[in-house]
Amino acid sequence: MLVLNIVLLLVTIGFLCWLVFTLAVFALPLLVGVTAGLWAYETGTGPVGGFLVGTAAAWAVAIVGQLLFAFARPLWVRVIVAGLFAGPAAVAGYAATLGIARLAIPSETWQMAVAFIGALAVGITALFRMAGVTPPDPRTEMASEA
């Protein structure tokens, strides 16, 4: 029974890590969507209206952010957009990694160390996922063909 518990714990930790890395880019849209949905609910739209407003706001932030990152040519705009998406992802990664580390690591110091490493890894993953959206620059393609 003890071996089964250890195996299930490792499978659960692996699944949660995969989930955090997969959904890291969507931390900012989720934050905006929840905030907008709660605001709409508090102003009297009801639960369905709050859900619809939150969903629309989350989709709008996700689409606008990815389009800005993909088509903006100035580097400073892309850095700002990437930072806006990677910041909440790193915070979410820290919280998720700390929760997972508390399941497996007894020392509080090591829990924090692992949580900081997890935050860094999730933030970098969010940056790379945002960078994967960018189309190739036609000027560099033409230069490599010549």
Rank of each mutant, 00 (worst) to 15 (best):
M1H: 15
M1W: 12
V3Q: 13
L4V: 04
L4A: 09
N5I: 04
I6D: 11
V7W: 03
V7Q: 05
L8M: 14
L8F: 08
L8V: 03
L8Y: 08
L9V: 06
L10C: 05
V11I: 12
I13E: 09
I13M: 07
L16E: 13
W18L: 13
W18C: 05
V20N: 05
F26V: 09
F26C: 09
A27R: 01
P29Q: 01
L30D: 10
L30F: 11
L30K: 07
L30M: 12
G33Q: 11
V34L: 15
V34C: 09
A36Q: 06
G37V: 00
A40R: 01
E42Q: 06
T45K: 05
T45M: 14
T45H: 07
P47Q: 13
V48E: 14
G49A: 06
G50M: 02
G50T: 05
G50Q: 12
F51M: 13
F51P: 06
F51Y: 11
L52F: 11
L52H: 07
L52K: 09
G54N: 09
G54K: 03
G54F: 10
T55Y: 11
T55M: 13
T55I: 03
A56Y: 06
A56H: 08
A58S: 05
A58E: 00
A58Y: 00
W59Q: 04
W59T: 04
A60C: 14
A60R: 03
I63D: 04
V64H: 04
V64A: 15
Q66M: 15
L67R: 13
L67D: 14
L67S: 08
A70Q: 10
F71H: 14
F71C: 04
W76M: 02
I80M: 03
I80G: 00
V81S: 00
V81G: 01
A82W: 02
G83M: 03
L84F: 00
L84A: 04
L84C: 02
F85N: 01
A86Y: 00
A89D: 13
A89C: 05
A89F: 05
A90W: 12
V91A: 15
A92Y: 01
A92L: 08
G93S: 10
G93D: 08
G93H: 08
G93F: 11
A96R: 09
T97P: 10
I100M: 15
A101P: 03
R102N: 15
R102K: 13
L103W: 15
A104H: 01
A104C: 00
I105G: 10
I105T: 09
I105C: 06
P106L: 08
P106S: 14
S107A: 10
A113W: 13
V114E: 07
V114Y: 05
A115P: 08
A115Q: 12
A115K: 12
A115R: 10
F116L: 15
G118H: 02
A119S: 03
A119I: 04
L120T: 12
G123A: 04
G123I: 00
A126F: 13
L127S: 08
L127Q: 09
R129L: 07
R129V: 03
G132F: 07
V133G: 11
V133M: 15
T134G: 05
P135T: 06
P136E: 13
P136L: 12
D137R: 14
P138H: 02
R139Y: 01
R139N: 00
T140H: 08
T140K: 12
T140A: 10
E141V: 07
M142R: 07
S144Q: 08
E145A: 14
